[in-house]
Design a protein around this nucleic acid. Structure first.
Length: 456
RNA sequence: GUCCCCAUCGUCUAGCCCGGUUAGGACGUCUCCCUUUCACGGAGAUAACCGGGGUUCGAAUCCCCGUGGGGACACCA
């Protein structure tokens, strides 16, 4: 068989969302799995709704998710241009073929595609108008995922608007022919359009590509498919929130596809090796951000220290808290080492580590009430403060030993000092071990914080 | 309304094609363990074959009908 050629064909009429990304991903995976070609084609024939801003979001999101395209904008290729707004000549040429074959006619200033068969008028209750039906046999669609689907396509349809611009169905098919697309992998919302497309392919006298209509992604709450306006729908949102692209890709693969065993976390090369069209599900999947978050945490946890530092640095650079956090590279590195095994996502970092970078941190009132109401926390603070000047701050275990021996001298344990000390130096009840916090903060800042709570 | 697609735990899913499983895994939730807090991790628990008919010795699995969900019905893509 000749080389697989697939395309992802977004229209830049809105932000790039989860569903589009998954469609792109399945196309990309299939190309990589088969050693084929992944083409990016921009379907910007709707002049009213297109915008350069949305176009850039598409490019940026695809690059972020590392779905590199082999042909398309910025790359070129033998079948360009790859933006439909620049392909008018191609459409004119193909329109002429259809016209020559007697498959078009003009009506109301637009060009219509003519079905072959006897015609009769029918009043359509739903559309409240009289339409012309054509007696035709049902169009058969052979779908790689759904099997054989029959659909009656029995009305002529517009292929070129009265303003001269060709419509989606026409340009989509023309480009698939011109770009020698072998497999059309797209959302199931296009299944109903496919009969139009098949009739066009047939009218052009070319073989119909293989179709694979993948299930849709439903919004996490409420009815319907996910759309650009839904909460958690936008790819760039995840990028901004510091999700790891490899985690998002892995998660997206699992929405509608799986390796047929218990594996979930897989490297992209494993996925490429295992992915295939017949393995794709037929039913829609609901988006579950909790599972994405879990996947993300799992990837974050196994990131090498240096990689984590890189990602965290990039995240803080784009964050309001970044200035303070990144002021001292050595401290930042230490704090990130402490934070990596503890957090679920990079977006937790600023709040989780704030007290390392500022002395003006918030003290959690609820935690304070709880901690200060048990035992004699102020006595413990006083004792610790007394021991502080002679404490060896060079490493965690030295600090731990110092606190333990202080505790032992009073007939207490490490735990009796833990909560109140943590509250004093971080304002909360969750975080790295207090010995690490001591070491990173340093004696002087610890002293000030202990005294502050003691005086409160 | 018409047409098309789909249907296993709350969610993502394995199993279905080639009928016989204690219907498996993951996320979530809960419990316990680990522990210097919080996470991580470990052990366990929770929870599903949409309904009804057939076919069959036997149906999650095959067939039909309902029901439910989704999509499409533009001179949008």
């Amino acid at each position: 068989m000749s080389q697989v050629r697939v395309r992802f064909a977004p229209s830049p009429t809105g932000f790039f969302h989860i569903g589009s990304a998954r469609t792109a991903l399945f196309n990309w995976l299939y190309a990589r799995h088969t050693g084929g070609v992944f083409i990016l084609r921009i379907e910007d024939t709707d002049k009213e709704r297109n915008s350069e801003q949305f176009l850039n979001v598409i490019y940026e999101s695809l690059r972020w998710l590392e779905m590199n395209w082999d042909e398309g904008p910025g790359i070129g290729g033998a079948f360009g241009p790859y933006r439909q707004s620049e392909r008018a000549a191609v459409y004119a040429e193909y329109l002429e073929k259809l016209r020559a074959a007697g498959r078009t006619y003009e009506k109301d200033g637009a060009t219509w595609f003519k079905l072959i068969g006897d015609r009769h008028e029918v009043f359509d209750e739903h559309r409240k108008k009289t339409v012309t039906k054509v007696n035709v046999a049902p169009t058969v669609i052979q779908d790689q995922i759904r099997g054989r689907v029959e659909r009656l396509e029995d009305e002529d349809f517009v292929i070129v608007r009265s303003d001269g611009n060709p419509v989606f169905h026409f340009v989509n098919v023309v480009d698939d022919i011109a770009m020698k697309i072998t497999h059309v992998i797209r959302g199931e919302d296009h299944l109903s359009n496919t009969s139009k497309h098949v009739e066009l392919f047939k009218a052009f006298g070319v073989p119909v590509p293989a179709f694979a209509h993948i299930p849709l992604i439903l919004k996490q709450n409420g009815p319907g498919k996910m759309s650009k306006r839904d909460q958690g729908a936008l790819i760039e949102e995840y990028q901004k929130r510091g999700f790891l692209p490899e985690a998002l890709v892995n998660f997206l693969c699992l929405l509608g596809w799986n390796p047929k065993d218990d594996r979930e976390k897989m490297t992209i090369s494993d996925i490429v090796a295992l992915f295939d069209l017949p393995g794709i599900n037929q039913s829609n999947a609901r988006f579950d951000e909790k599972k994405l978050a879990h996947m993300n945490m799992s990837y974050l946890l196994e990131l090498p220290e240096e990689k984590f530092l890189e990602r965290a640095t990039a995240f803080f650079r784009a964050h309001p808290a970044g200035g303070a956090a990144l002021a001292d590279a050595a401290v930042f590195r230490e704090v990130m080492r402490l934070a990596q095994p503890k957090i679920k996502g990079l977006e937790e970092l600023p709040a989780y580590t704030a007290y390392f970078f500022t002395d003006d941190f918030v003290i959690d009132a609820k935690v304070q009430e709880k901690v200060m109401g048990k035992g004699d926390p102020k006595a413990r603070l006083g004792e610790l403060l007394g021991a502080l000047p002679s404490m060896n701050f060079s490493n965690d275990s030295a600090i731990e030993e110092a606190i333990k021996s202080l505790a032992a001298g009073k007939g207490l344990g490490f735990g009796d000092y833990q909560a109140v000390t943590r509250l004093a130096i971080s304002g909360t009840n969750a975080g790295p071990s207090i010995t690490s916090m001591f070491r990173v903060l340093g004696r002087e800042r610890v002293r000030v914080r202990l005294e502050r709570l003691l005086a409160a």
